[in-house]
Nucleic acid binder design. Structure first.
Lengths: 205, 205
DNA sequence: ATCGCGGCTGACACTGAGTATCAGATTAGG
DNA sequence: CCTAATCTGATACTCAGTGTCAGCCGCGAT
């Protein structure tokens, strides 16, 4: 997926980054994202404000950098997906891969999603990342398709919808403290597309 | 839709706001959104920085406040929509209402969409507004549905997908300088949902 | 061992967004 | 015309984010 950072410098940088993020995350959860300044964070972490800012370009990145690999995970999973399925099935499976990547520690992910949910700035920045992933995913989805007409509106719509599903499902899941089954939630969410003439909004469960 | 601002103060405020936005918009298009400061804007508009900031809380709002009524337009249109149709049809029609509201001056909308597209901060803030509209729209969509089960995941997914369609369609439309037919574009986009077992991503045109 | 070099760090200064306050001008409305 | 609410501009402030610079530390080469 990504080249292993063999250089000692890279290892060090990665470790420091993780530690700074860990310290900062506690502060954010304790006091609230907007109430914490870089001065607070750097003091708590025992480094200068300059150094802290060198590791994270923005305050949002201190929380959201963990989502950075998701775009790559999705495109890789889409490449690995057999091409003889319809778009929705492939997107569903690919989202499951993304979810598996994210759910390392359940409690940690629930906490981080809660923090994001109650912080507009984090929601906004996360959606920005999501928008950055989209073009690449659309390209992969269309690559296996025989005739690529000019517009690609449909592929864009499907990918955008799938990415929305990702956050809706994760939100629902974290609201249940991580007890609900993510695979079932994905099926439920994708059922919104599989029942084209259905008027009612009931879940099939 | 919204109570007419009968007070003279409200009228004045509205007019000043429009004029400030007009002046600012030219600057943004000329120099680029990020390169223009509030000091520049206030000087160009002939008011103090304080006053300018009193009319627009953030720089993004100077551009995006025109989209504020869209949420209301959509919910109103959804209320007016006959309840005997499926969700996708209703959402399609409602989006057409939103689009009709936005397309007053074609050239102006094309310009503003272009500015937004090339300014990440504006994209992010617009998506934030979009996310604010969603709960209300979901509620209206579910109101006409007989049995509302606990989760509402499906309704959320459909509304989120429809709102994504809105921006994708507008993006495509503005890329054609407003020449393409928005109704047809909406049909094309919604075809992404109507062809559940279809593997290829071709447009039906 | 030491020298030199590249990268890391902290200190400092700076721009610009956004908030808050206050005194004075202006205007609505009786 | 008078009063009270509101608008304005000036000023000061916090904080995010950028840029610079000198000193330090580790690391490889001589």
């Amino acid at each position: 997926m990504s080249a292993a950072p063999v250089g000692t410098r890279e290892i060090s940088r990665h470790a420091v980054r993780a530690e700074l993020a860990r310290v900062a995350f506690n502060r954010f959860c304790l006091t609230g994202f907007d109430q914490v300044t870089f001065a607070d964070l750097s003091e708590a972490a025992g480094v200068s404000r300059s150094t802290f800012l060198r590791y994270f370009g923005t305050k949002e990145d201190v929380v959201l950098f963990v989502f950075d690999p998701v775009g790559g995970v999705i495109t890789d999973a889409l490449d690995a997906e057999p091409a003889d399925q319809d778009d929705w099935s492939r997107l569903r499976n690919v989202l499951e891969a993304a979810v598996r990547f994210l759910v390392g520690d359940v409690q940690e992910l629930v906490t981080i999603l809660g923090l994001i949910e109650q912080t507009p700035a984090l929601c906004a920045r996360l959606r920005e990342k999501q928008a950055e992933w989209r073009p690449e995913i659309v390209a992969r989805l269309q690559k296996t398709t025989s005739s690529t007409d000019g517009s690609s509106v449909i592929a864009n719509v499907r990918v955008a919808a799938a990415l929305e599903v990702l956050w809706i499902v994760l939100g629902q899941w974290s609201a249940s403290d991580g007890r609900e089954d993510l695979g079932e939630l994905l099926d439920t969410a994708f059922a919104a597309f599989s029942t084209p003439a259905c008027r009612q909004t009931d879940a099939p469960l």
